[in-house]
C-alpha cells in the first residue's frame, strides 16, 4: 500500500516544478521541449531519488534509535548525529575545499562521534531517568557541534565558503545531481537493508538488557550494529542535504500509530512514510515560490506542528521508561 503510494508520489513529482510554467509540466511538453526533458532527467529525477533516500534514512534511523535506546523521544537530530555530520561537512568546505567523498567520510566520522558522546554523557549525567538523560545529553552534544559549525562560519571565507555553508545548513536538495546520488546510494542502501533485515530483533533490543540477554540476545553487540547501520546513511545524506530536522522523530510515531509497535511491520512503514513525507516537503520547497524554500525549514515547520498535534490530541501510546 505505502510502497505504491510512494511510487505514485515519485511519478507525479517528476512533473511538478516551475518550468516552463509554475506547478505542472505535461508529458507532451517533455516530449517536445528538449530543455524540459533534460531538466526532468538531470535535475528532478536525482533530486526525487535523494529526497526519498533522505526521508527513508532519517525516519528509519529515528525509528531504530527510539527502539534501541528505549526512548520514543529521540531522533538523529537530537543525539548529535545530524549536527556531527553537519560539522564534518562544514569542516570539509572550510579546510579542504568541499570534495564530496571527503565530506561524506568526515560527516560519517563526526556523526558517529556525536552519537557516542551523547550516549556516554547520558550514562554519566546524574539527573533524571534514562529518557530525560539521553535527551539532555543529545541536546548538549548537538549544541557543541553547532558551536563548532558557528566557529567554522566565523573563520570561513565570507565570499566563497560562507554562503556555501549557510545554504547547505538550511537544509535542501537544490544542488542535487546524479553525481551525489551515486555517492550516497551504496551506503544508504546497505544501511537501510541491514536495518530492514534486523527489524524484528529491534523489538528484543527495546526490552531491558538483562531480559533481552535471557532471551538469547547479545544486547550490547547487536545495539551497536543497529546504531552503525542507522547512523551511516544519515551521515551520508546529511553531507548532501544539510540538516533536515524532525523527520526522524515524528514519522516513527505515525507509523506505530498506523501499524502497531512491532518493528517487523512498523519499521518498513516508517521507511516508506518518511520517504513520502520528505518527498512531498521537497516538492513544496521547489514548487510553491519562485525562489526555493529551504527543505529543513519546511520539515521542521510541518514536523513540529504534527508533533504538537499528535501529543496534544492523543496520549502517547508508549509508556514512560522506568
Amino acid at each position: 500500500m505505502l510502497a505504491v503510494l510512494l511510487l505514485l508520489v515519485m511519478f507525479f513529482s517528476l512533473f511538478l516544478g516551475r518550468y516552463p510554467t509554475p506547478f505542472w509540466l505535461s508529458p507532451s511538453q517533455i516530449a517536445t521541449d528538449p530543455l524540459a526533458a533534460a531538466l526532468v532527467w538531470d535535475f528532478r529525477f536525482p533530486r526525487i531519488l535523494l529526497a526519498v533516500l533522505l526521508g527513508a534514512a532519517l525516519s528509519t534511523a529515528g525509528f531504530a534509535m527510539q527502539m534501541v535506546f528505549r526512548n520514543p523521544l529521540v531522533e538523529p537530530g537530537f543525539l548529535g548525529v545530524s549536527q556531527g555530520a553537519a560539522f564534518g561537512s562544514a569542516l570539509t568546505i572550510v579546510a579542504f575545499g568541499g570534495s564530496l567523498a571527503l565530506a561524506e567520510g568526515l560527516a560519517a566520522l563526526f556523526a558517529i562521534l556525536g552519537l557516542l558522546l551523547s550516549y556516554l554523557f547520558a550514562r554519566a549525567i546524574r539527573y533524571g531517568g534514562w529518557v530525560l538523560r539521553l535527551v539532555l545529553a543529545g541536546i548538549a552534544v548537538s549544541a557543541l557541534f553547532s558551536a563548532g559549525v558557528g566557529m567554522l562560519k566565523f573563520v570561513a571565507d565570507p565570499l566563497r565558503q560562507l554562503p556555501e555553508i549557510v545554504f547547505w545548513l538550511l537544509g535542501g536538495l537544490s544542488g542535487a545531481r546524479w553525481e551525489q546520488v551515486w555517492y550516497v546510494l551504496p551506503i544508504a542502501l546497505i544501511g537501510l537493508l541491514v536495518l530492514f533485515l534486523l527489524r524484528w530483533r529491534l523489538n528484543l533490543l527495546s526490552l531491558d538488557d538483562a531480559t533481552a540477554f535471557s532471551l538469547g540476545v547479545h544486547p550490547g553487540r547487536e545495539r551497536w550494529l543497529v546504531l552503525l547501520a542507522a547512523v551511516l546513511p544519515v551521515a551520508a545524506l546529511v553531507s548532501v542535504s544539510g540538516i533536515v530536522g524532525w523527520v526522524g522523530l515524528i514519522v516513527p510515531h505515525f507509523s506505530r500509530r498506523l501499524v502497531g509497535a512491532n518493528a517487523r511491520w512498523a519499521l518498513p512503514a516508517a521507511m516508506l512514510l518518511g520517504a513520502i513525507f520528505v518527498l512531498l516537503c521537497d516538492d513544496l520547497a521547489r514548487t510553491v515560490l519562485a525562489g526555493e524554500i529551504p527543505l529543513g525549514i519546511l520539515t521542521s515547520l510541518v514536523g513540529a506542528l504534527l508533533f504538537l498535534w499528535l501529543f496534544v490530541r492523543f496520549t502517547p501510546r508508549e509508556r514512560k521508561a522506568g
Binding site: 527495546s206 531491558d208 509508556r319
Partner: peptide
Amino acid sequence: LVPQQERTVFEF
C-alpha cells in the same frame, strides 16, 4: 527468565 515488574516502553 521472568523478571520482576517488567516494563515495556513500546506497546506490543
